[in-house]
Simulated scan of single mutants.
Amino acid sequence: MTDSYTPNATAEGWNQFVDQMNQQFMDAFEQNVEAQAEFVESWTETFESSVDDDEMTEGVKGYARAYEAWMDAAQRMVDRANDAAQGEDVEVEEFRDIWLNTANEAFKEAMSTTAFAAATGESVGEALDLRQQADEAAESTLHDLGFATEGDVVEIGERLVELERRQHAVEEKLDRILEELDE
């Protein structure tokens, strides 16, 4: 068995490499499009129920700016992939940086709208209401089981502070009475 250099083997290896790169790029692009579609779907569902028409219009414009950022990134990726195919030295990290920077830019565009702020505010409000209900249920359950609850401890603390205040007042009166008797 001999190892010999054949131009066809090299070309075939290069073609496989390029095919693999193209496939990976297309897979990444497809995942990006799917992620965008999921984002739009969940974004739309959230905002339809929580924002008015003006906020919705602004939110759609914010999403459009984010979409433009993604499409610009896709074009830059294609351009850099073409540059690499033409022999230019393109670092793999450059591709990663394009997507990371674009993700930051796109989310900033979507999140800086009043629609996003309104929906986030509503979500936080609902989460706080849910937390309060859970806290009340937990405290009720603990109280029913005979355990001291946070409310019980707070009440005891308030009573102790009141007792200390009254004791201090009695001590001051006693000190005045003792002073009067000494005179």
Score class of each variant (00 low, 15 high):
residue 1 M to C: 13
residue 3 D to H: 09
residue 4 S to L: 11
residue 4 S to V: 15
residue 5 Y to V: 04
residue 9 A to F: 12
residue 9 A to L: 10
residue 10 T to M: 06
residue 10 T to R: 15
residue 12 E to Q: 11
residue 15 N to W: 14
residue 18 V to A: 11
residue 18 V to H: 14
residue 19 D to A: 11
residue 20 Q to M: 13
residue 22 N to A: 07
residue 24 Q to R: 14
residue 25 F to N: 05
residue 27 D to I: 15
residue 27 D to L: 15
residue 28 A to M: 07
residue 31 Q to A: 13
residue 34 E to F: 12
residue 36 Q to G: 10
residue 40 V to I: 07
residue 41 E to N: 04
residue 44 T to F: 04
residue 46 T to P: 05
residue 50 S to W: 02
residue 51 V to D: 14
residue 56 M to T: 13
residue 59 G to Y: 01
residue 59 G to A: 00
residue 59 G to L: 03
residue 62 G to T: 00
residue 62 G to L: 03
residue 62 G to A: 01
residue 63 Y to S: 00
residue 64 A to S: 00
residue 64 A to D: 01
residue 65 R to P: 00
residue 68 E to S: 00
residue 71 M to V: 04
residue 72 D to K: 01
residue 72 D to Y: 02
residue 75 Q to R: 11
residue 76 R to I: 03
residue 76 R to N: 07
residue 76 R to S: 12
residue 79 D to W: 06
residue 79 D to M: 08
residue 80 R to W: 07
residue 80 R to K: 13
residue 82 N to P: 07
residue 83 D to R: 07
residue 83 D to P: 03
residue 83 D to M: 09
residue 88 E to Y: 07
residue 91 E to C: 06
residue 92 V to G: 08
residue 93 E to V: 15
residue 94 E to G: 04
residue 95 F to K: 01
residue 96 R to N: 09
residue 98 I to E: 00
residue 100 L to M: 10
residue 101 N to G: 15
residue 102 T to L: 02
residue 102 T to K: 00
residue 102 T to R: 00
residue 103 A to N: 12
residue 104 N to F: 02
residue 105 E to N: 05
residue 105 E to G: 08
residue 106 A to S: 02
residue 106 A to G: 00
residue 107 F to I: 08
residue 108 K to S: 04
residue 110 A to H: 01
residue 112 S to T: 01
residue 113 T to N: 02
residue 113 T to Q: 00
residue 113 T to L: 03
residue 114 T to K: 06
residue 115 A to S: 03
residue 116 F to C: 05
residue 116 F to R: 00
residue 117 A to K: 03
residue 120 T to V: 14
residue 120 T to W: 07
residue 122 E to N: 14
residue 122 E to W: 01
residue 123 S to Q: 08
residue 124 V to W: 02
residue 125 G to C: 05
residue 130 L to H: 11
residue 130 L to G: 06
residue 132 Q to A: 11
residue 133 Q to C: 11
residue 138 A to R: 05
residue 138 A to K: 04
residue 139 E to F: 06
residue 140 S to D: 12
residue 141 T to I: 11
residue 141 T to V: 10
residue 142 L to E: 03
residue 142 L to C: 04
residue 143 H to A: 10
residue 143 H to Q: 07
residue 144 D to K: 04
residue 145 L to R: 04
residue 148 A to L: 09
residue 150 E to S: 13
residue 151 G to E: 09
residue 153 V to H: 09
residue 153 V to M: 10
residue 155 E to R: 12
residue 156 I to F: 14
residue 159 R to G: 07
residue 161 V to P: 02
residue 162 E to G: 15
residue 164 E to T: 14
residue 164 E to H: 13
residue 165 R to G: 13
residue 165 R to L: 10
residue 167 Q to G: 12
residue 171 E to A: 01
residue 172 E to F: 05
residue 172 E to L: 08
residue 172 E to G: 15
residue 172 E to Q: 06
residue 173 K to R: 02
residue 173 K to F: 07
residue 173 K to D: 12
residue 174 L to T: 08
residue 175 D to V: 03
residue 175 D to F: 04
residue 175 D to S: 12
residue 177 I to E: 09
